[in-house]
Computed example of a mutant assay.
Amino acid sequence: MGQVVMFAGSRVGTGKTTTTMMTALAANRLFEQRVLLIDATSTLELTQTVNQVFNYESSANLLTGLAVQNLAKVVTPLREQLDFIPGVDKLEDYFDMAMEAEATAKTARTLDLVPQLMADLRHQYDYIFIDTDADFATVMDNCLASTDYVVIMQPVGHGGFDATDKLFYYLKQLKEEQPTVRATIIGHLAVDLASAEPFYQVEPASSFDVVDAFRVVITRNAWLAESQPFAPNATHATAARQMAGAMYAEVFNELQARVTLQKQLGKFANANGITERGQGVHLFS
């Protein structure tokens, strides 16, 4: 049974989309996991990025899958054991119209539109990664209601902690209103995009005062500093690209360990990484 994961936050520009895609690539290529990526954003950055990397063509999207009540019909294969459901910018409008048509409250819709359809996909994948906006809207409600584990993207600084608190209490309130929502925050992934240092040279995440922080700190290295790092003609150095691969391989390795321990013990803990700090890995070939 596949695990549904969101890298979430209530603040834009924290690297949610990049982390979602890179972690999915690491899970698929390095850990040989069956992975599904879903773009549930209004900006469609993930859809555009996937198009750049894989040059895929698909007229189907998430909205089409919702309309026919079958997400499997809109899955686009990208490579072996890696699939994708493209997004569409009118998604929130669809949710709003569906609520209005049935005269239901916002929270009541969390159990009607996406969760059951997501459940039908779980047996086909090891991990399903959903990319979402930072807005607390009906789409976010449905994604949270469909998710097993949430990793909060934690920017450094007071603003980042305020944004994290906002998401934490929003999810808590949603679970109180809808007891069937089971999403669990499985940790904080520290983000310091002002730092140009490689991830393995940054201070330990514990220095940010987040007890359950991942060991890795997402930094703005040379690869991520490119305006379009995923583009095939990007000018970034191969070593920098490999460094980014190593960073997100560490993220997935720890995520997998946390999910395993959460299921076994009801709590998560850090595990030793499979990659040495700074070791280059290839995710795109």
Rank of each mutant, 00 (worst) to 15 (best):
P229V: 05
R220M: 15
D209Q: 13
N221K: 10
A194R: 10
F199H: 08
Q201L: 11
F230K: 04
G187V: 02
I218N: 02
A190G: 07
D212W: 05
V191N: 05
L189T: 00
F199I: 04
P198L: 12
L193H: 07
V211P: 03
S206F: 10
I186F: 13
S195N: 09
W223D: 06
D192K: 14
F208Q: 14
I186V: 13
S195Y: 06
T184F: 08
N221S: 13
Y200G: 02
L189W: 00
D212V: 02
L189M: 11
T219Q: 02
G187I: 01
Q228G: 04
E203C: 08
E226S: 15
S207M: 09
S195T: 04
P204I: 01
R220S: 14
F199N: 01
W223G: 00
R215M: 02
P204S: 15
N221C: 07
D209W: 11
S206L: 14
L224T: 01
I185R: 00
A194D: 14
H188R: 14
H188S: 12
L193C: 04
T184E: 11
F230Q: 07
D192C: 07
V217A: 12
S207R: 12
V210R: 12
A213T: 11
F230M: 15
A190K: 10
L193G: 03
L189I: 05
F199L: 14
A213K: 03
F230V: 07
A190W: 00
S227Y: 15
I218Y: 03
Q201K: 15
A190N: 00
A205P: 08
F230R: 07
A194T: 14
I185L: 04
E197H: 00
V216D: 00
A213D: 12
H188C: 12
E203D: 12
F214H: 01
V211S: 10
P229D: 01
E226C: 14
D209N: 05
D192Y: 09
T184I: 10
H188Q: 10
E203L: 10
A222W: 09
T184A: 13
V210P: 02
T219V: 03
Y200D: 09
F208N: 11
D209K: 10
R220L: 13
G187W: 09
T184D: 00
A205K: 05
P198N: 07
A194C: 07
F208M: 14
V202K: 07
E226V: 15
T184H: 08
V217L: 06
I185C: 09
P204M: 01
I186D: 06
R220C: 15
T184C: 05
F208D: 09
S227T: 15
I185P: 00
A225I: 05
E226F: 12
R220T: 09
L189N: 03
S206G: 03
S206E: 08
L224S: 01
A222T: 05
T219F: 13
R220Y: 01
I185E: 01
A222G: 03
F214Y: 07
Q228C: 14
V191W: 06
A213E: 02
V216Q: 12
P229C: 08
E226G: 14
P198R: 08
A194V: 03
S207L: 12
S206T: 05
A213S: 13
Q201Y: 06
S227K: 15
E226K: 14
A196N: 08
H188T: 06
Y200E: 08
D192E: 05
